[in-house]
Amino acid sequence: MNFLYFDPGLGAMIAQAVIAAAAGVMLFSKNVMYKVKSFFGMVKDEDDNFDSIDIEEKDRKADDQ
């Protein structure tokens, strides 16, 4: 069991199930939009340390599959 030194909030633990479900839908539709846009060549590649949540190249590729 993880020990805990502050209250994580019970509501917050429950809420995450809903938040994650909504996020899943959002990401799915974003992914579809991305594919549509890249089909028409409308995607710009940005170069920034914060362009992706994944810090390793292989993670990025793994997620795209």
């Binding site: 994650a20 996020a23 990401l27 914060f50």
Partner: peptide
């Protein structure tokens, strides 16, 4: 109250969505 389960993939989605929104 019972704490809901959250799969690793679901948590990743939640993080990724927050990341995209904040960016």
């Amino acid at each position: 109250t019972k704490i809901a389960k959250l799969s690793r993939k679901a948590q990743s989605n939640m993080l990724e969505n927050l990341f995209g929104y904040i960016r």
